[in-house]
């Protein structure tokens, strides 16, 4: 599944970039995130709860930030698995100054498997978009 979109933040790219590298901020902003801890340079372990269609489940996984180019771009690689299946995501986020704030554009690939794919496929696209929207809303509230 391809994921792409644009979000607006009311603060400068430097600040936006910094926020998106902060585990405390990310754990507040990622929908369903229950724990996020740094395990190494640009590597985090994450626990999250995901709700999809008629079921929900806990995920454990890791997040890696690759190719950091502060404050203009970085690549995020997410891998998680749980009882309801697994997910893999890989995308590039690009930050551009715009109208005194930041425009974040993102583009990537996500793959899901297991029960989540078998019974949640029809909703995964909208669920992903909703989660991304919420993420940026929470991030915007971090000023």
């Amino acid at each position: 599944m391809k994921i792409a979109g644009v979000a607006q933040l009311a603060f400068a790219p430097e600040r936006a970039y910094e926020l998106m590298q902060d585990p405390a901020v990310l754990s507040r902003a990622i929908p369903g995130c229950e724990a996020l801890e740094r395990t190494g340079d640009n590597e985090y372990r994450m626990k999250m709860k995901m709700m999809l269609a008629s079921f929900s489940g806990a995920f454990e996984g890791k997040v890696r930030l690759v190719d950091p180019q502060p404050p203009t771009s970085f690549r995020m690689v997410v891998e998680g698995s749980g009882k309801i299946g697994f997910m893999k995501g890989d995308g590039v986020l690009t930050l551009t100054a715009k109208d005194g704030g930041t425009e974040v554009s993102y583009e990537g690939d996500a793959q899901i498997g297991g029960t989540m794919a078998a019974v949640g496929q029809r909703l995964i696209d909208t669920t992903a978009r909703m989660m991304i929207k919420r993420f940026f809303e929470k991030l915007a509230a971090e000023v």
Binding site: Q111, I112, A117
Partner: peptide, 14 residues
């Protein structure tokens, strides 16, 4: 089945 071999129609909703 999707390209990764995942069955994406795994219940009567789909």
């Amino acid at each position: 089945y999707d390209d990764a071999g995942q069955l994406v129609t795994g219940e009567f909703m789909d």
